[in-house]
Design a protein around this nucleic acid. Structure first.
Lengths: 149, 149
DNA sequence: ATACATTGGTTGTATATACAAATATTAGTA
DNA sequence: TACTAATATTTGTATATACAACCAATGTAT
């Protein structure tokens, strides 16, 4: 459905303005898909993102700074996200012996199991994007990379 | 810059997964652009969106439901957004005589002036998207329309 | 060593979001 | 007319965001 119809707006005067609005509108749509998907596993998108990053180094630990830099949403507060994940028993935190300013985050078996469970359902989430062919998906991705410069 | 490098991740196994992550990451980038742009005018993106919608019907009033339906971010709480805009003197609200459940929102001269001022700076915001040619901007927009189905 | 800057993480706070429940008015209908 | 449903907006609340200020550990220069 054309963005003009979605938000009941006449033609845009500027192609870039249309793109801006379309990106924001589409993001809300994507967010909605993700929100409902992760909710069934009792996680937020950001919590899942942190878990995945920690798994990326597993069984080595990851420090907060690394998590921050690898997050899709850089505005998240890693301290508070990790707190939530500890409460749920999915990760542990320890002060790094080599540099006591740093915190080492590690995945627990329970956290790994949770991620594995979510993995098996991921195709269901991605299915919602199959209105685009995989060639088109690649094309959009590459253009977004170019957009950000 | 490739999304893989932005978030320090190896190749994605799935083109749709890459697209999903890229959309979310790009949205944060876009948001950052918008946030800093509108901040200099003392407005949030959503407040500006509401103002623009009200101007769209000016000098006729717009009711909350119409605002809701035309907003780029549908999750916003129109009641509270309009409260803010009234505080700032940019809109007025009145109970609709014909249907007293409805609220009529109207732009004030001050609100119109503010919008006009912002308009004159909009090209500065859109300039940040000029890494894409206008043909590419149209292409991405159309693919996003297709993605949402 | 001491002072100062930097790094890595934490905390506080105002505002915004998501979502459910509540209220008020109008419309439909038996 | 009274009853019920539908519509339009408001309110409450738990959680999340943006952003600044803070603290502790380490590095560096004198």
């Amino acid at each position: 459905m054309r963005i003009e119809d979605e938000i009941q707006q006449r033609e845009f005067t500027d192609d870039y303005r249309r793109l801006l609005v379309n990106l924001l509108f589409t993001n809300n749509w994507v967010n909605q898909q993700q929100l409902s998907f992760f909710k069934q596993f009792g996680l937020t998108q950001q919590q899942h993102n942190v878990l995945s990053i920690v798994r990326g180094q597993h069984p080595s630990p990851v420090c907060f700074g690394d998590i921050q830099n690898r997050m899709v949403d850089r505005n998240s507060n890693v301290t508070r996200l990790v707190d939530k994940l500890i409460e749920k028993g999915y990760v542990t935190r320890d002060i790094c012996a080599a540099n006591r300013r740093m915190i080492e985050v590690r995945l627990t078996p329970k956290g790994l199991e949770k991620l594995t469970q979510i993995d098996s359902y991921l195709p269901q989430l991605l299915e919602r994007f199959h209105n685009l062919s995989s060639e088109e998906a690649v094309l959009v991705s590459n253009l977004l990379d170019k957009l950000r410069g």
